[in-house]
Nucleic acid binder design. Structure first.
Length: 442
RNA sequence: GCGGGGAUGGCCCAGUGGUACGGCGGCAGCCUGCUAAGCUGUUUCUCGAAAUGAGAGCAUGGGUUCAAAUCCCAUUCCCCGCGCCA
């Protein structure tokens, strides 16, 4: 949620921000209309309550002295009548206003590029030694800042779907039979590779001062609505029937709501936490996209980084989260690029968002594997997470970034590490897997 | 699931219908050669330019009453015991 006082005092920055995001500014107009009415009503309502409190105090005195209170009772009754009428009206206005204010997106950061579309995101940097099929070279060059760090492949590499079948690493048909499309059984060495990735990421983040944890995989409405935006709510989430519970779409949701309605001491910040959990996404609106294999699925495992910090430090932590993720992919030797996401494609919580996109040789494309956002105080405001300062309590800033979304990384490993007759295991993972390659007979 | 007990400000705790007591901690100030101690004030949210201004707030949502932390109903969570259970 945005800062309502700031909105009242500096309308222009919110109009500018909404326009840059491609948001309909009618919601701002509507907000001001309702808010003005609300403030007027509040004055009247508070005056009525003030009068009532005075009379009630008088009654209390008279009762003590055995005085007659019939008169005063009548007065209170008529005031109560007015209060009830007005507060019903006020409640309606307030509900509508609060519904609308939750739709207003976070203020855009000055370094977020004003544009729209994946293909227009701002290129930041490329790293790695990509294996590029000769026909994809033009695309690669264009999207890697014209990098010369690549090796040309004369033959088109196999896609992950073929590799899964060939090496007997997943059963997608039977998962479809029992659960539907976009589900999977992971098998054998691919499953062990996933466990290795999880353990590797957990150790990695522990060494970088994150408290690693397994969160609840379901949370209630009030936590979820504070942690997400309305679009996520409508499109992505699974609801548990008969209970006030939603399956989490990322461990960011329980990690941030964990501290809801709390006031932290300044010396507790920053708080770095990491969640390891499955993520459940309905993927409504993604029909026809990435329908094969395990690239886009309803359930995947993810290790997430999350930071609570003071506002003045939050862009430093943003860089830290991006660097952590980068260091993981450097160590795994998966080629990637980083992009600054277009204003119109940002979620409403984020002030700025960087994606890391891995190179997928058989798709011949960079695809998203990491998303790092600075939500500034937007999410903390919705969930009421503050810290104490000399000048009163202030909202913390919250930041989130993927460390490893295992299914996408498994695909990246399969595609980037396919060799003549086997799939190589990235060196840093071998201590975790206990094997250094996947062969057909495994 | 059943029975019993509970939820009060950052924390602890008092308060059985008349408008939330006290302590700890935090912050600010005073005092002091320094530190400690001591003393004073302050500590949540909303409206307001601000006020020694007003309103709200005792787990949540309703109800009774001139008046509710207090009485009634429902719900949530925690603790103890019993039952069930990976």
């Amino acid at each position: 949620m945005i800062d309502i006082k700031l909105l009242r005092s500096d309308k222009k920055i919110f109009y500018d921000s909404c326009i840059a995001r491609g948001f309909d500014i009618k919601i701002l107009d509507k907000f001001f209309e309702l808010d003005e009415k609300w403030r007027e009503n509040l004055k009247v309502l508070n005056n009525l309550k003030h009068d009532k409190n005075n009379i009630t105090a008088e009654i209390a005195k008279k009762v003590k002295n055995n005085g007659d209170i019939a008169d005063l009772r009548g007065k209170v009754a008529s005031i109560n009548n007015n209060i009830n009428k007005l507060s019903d009206e006020q409640k309606t206005i307030e509900d509508e206003r609060d519904k609308i204010i939750r739709l207003i997106p976070n203020l855009l950061d000055k370094n977020a590029p004003v544009c729209s579309g994946d293909e227009n995101s701002q290129f930041i940097r490329y790293y790695g030694m990509a294996r590029v099929y000769k026909d994809d070279l033009k695309y690669f060059k264009k999207n890697s800042g014209n990098s010369s760090d690549y090796k040309i492949l004369e033959e088109k590499p196999e896609g992950h779907m073929e590799l899964l079948n060939e090496y007997n690493l997943a059963d997608i048909e039977r998962a479809g039979k029992i659960a539907g499309s976009r589900f999977y059984f992971l098998k054998n060495r691919l499953f062990k590779l996933e466990l290795a990735l999880i353990n590797y990421a957990v150790d990695f983040l522990s060494q970088r001062n994150f408290t690693v944890m397994e969160p609840p995989f379901m949370i209630n409405y009030s936590s979820m609505s504070g942690a997400t935006d309305i679009e996520t709510f409508k499109e992505s989430l699974y609801k548990i029937e008969g209970d006030d519970l939603y399956l989490i779409a990322t461990s960011e949701h329980p990690l941030v709501s964990m501290l809801s309605n709390e006031i932290l001491n300044m010396d507790e910040l920053p708080i770095r936490v990491s969640g390891v959990s499955p993520c459940f996404r309905r993927e409504a609106g993604a029909h026809g996209k990435d329908t094969k294999g395990i690239f886009r699925v309803h359930q995947f495992n993810k290790i997430e980084q999350f930071v609570f910090c003071k506002p003045e430090d939050s862009w430093d932590y943003f860089d830290e989260l991006v660097k952590n993720a980068e260091d993981i992919y450097k160590s795994l030797e998966i080629p990637y690029r980083i992009v600054n996401i277009c204003s119109e494609d940002l979620g409403s919580l984020a002030a700025r968002k960087y994606d890391i996109e891995a190179w997928y040789p058989s798709q011949g494309k960079f695809r998203e594997i990491v998303s790092a956002s600075n939500d500034t105080d937007y999410q903390a405001r919705s969930l009421n997470i503050k810290y104490r300062t000399k000048d009163g309590n202030k909202f913390v800033n919250t930041l989130n970034s993927t460390a490893v979304a295992t299914e996408r990384i498994l695909v990246a490993i399969l595609e980037n590490y396919q060799r003549e007759n086997y799939i190589e295991i990235p060196k840093v993972l071998v201590p975790y897997t206990g094997f250094d390659k996947i062969e057909r007979e495994d």
